[in-house]
Amino acid sequence: MSQGPNMVVCIKQVPDSAQISVHPVTNTIMRQGVPTIINPYDLFALEAALKLRDQLGGKVTVLTMGPPMAASALRKALGHGADDAILLSDRFFAGADTLATSYALTAAINKIGAERPVDIVFTGKQTIDGDTAQVGPGIARRMGLNQLTYVSAIPSIDLEAGEISVHRRAEGGVQVLKTKLPCLITMLEATNELRRGSLPDVLRAERAEIKVWNAEAAGVEDLGKCGMKGSPTKVSKVFAPKPRAEKAKMITAEDGAPASVAAAAVETLLDADPRLLSVLTKQTTVA
């Protein structure tokens, strides 16, 4: 086996929000028949790991926690070129918030690392259904991994020295960070494009055995820290947002000429937001 990095990519199966519609009368979500996808942000994490494997060799294991149907997300990831897939699935994991999720995933990653230590754990920057961006930092903290969030590039990695440097998106700029392996990286969106799987990978994925680990198999020590029981946050209420009272107010002009409509639009916008004009004049004078 190659001496390249041992990598784990955490992914999540989510409902495809592009296919979600809201019932026009009841204003509730119509979930029926909504297809599931791999959380789009996770694809950037998967590709980042595959790229490192191109360069250095090593192994990419995809890991997800979810119901048995989440195996299809793993199969898809195998089709893109991941080497191995593990589904963490157990009724004890149901209803987990981010703290309980990071606990279970940590157990599984430790188990993966028992064979050969894990060098890098990858996650997406967040999921599109939960949007919390907390599970990555949670895993890092629990495992004592150096935490690198919002990474846009991995310019260098030195396995011998056990060092990695990354570009991290910060407020108002990019931090160039250097740290030690093992580390956890949450990849920023739009930083790469996931490769199409090769034909052999796609065929292999179809037949591949997805390992399913329950809590015991994953080596979870404390079931009380899993699922709903291990979650300090509780959802007390779910409700539909108030529909916007009315649709867009249409701006028109008597003569219908673009110039007249445009002039009317400018006045409409400035009237609706009295501070807009000062923002505009300030910005454009500076520019």
Binding site: L99, R141, Y150, E171, P232
Partner: peptide, 23 residues
């Protein structure tokens, strides 16, 4: 909920084993 705030909040909440509600 900035890149800094989210990076910090996730680590602090896990260390303190408490609930964190994002965004």
């Amino acid at each position: 909920a900035t890149t800094l705030g989210r990076d910090l909040a996730g680590a602090v909440a896990t260390t303190l084993q408490t609930g964190l509600t994002a965004d």
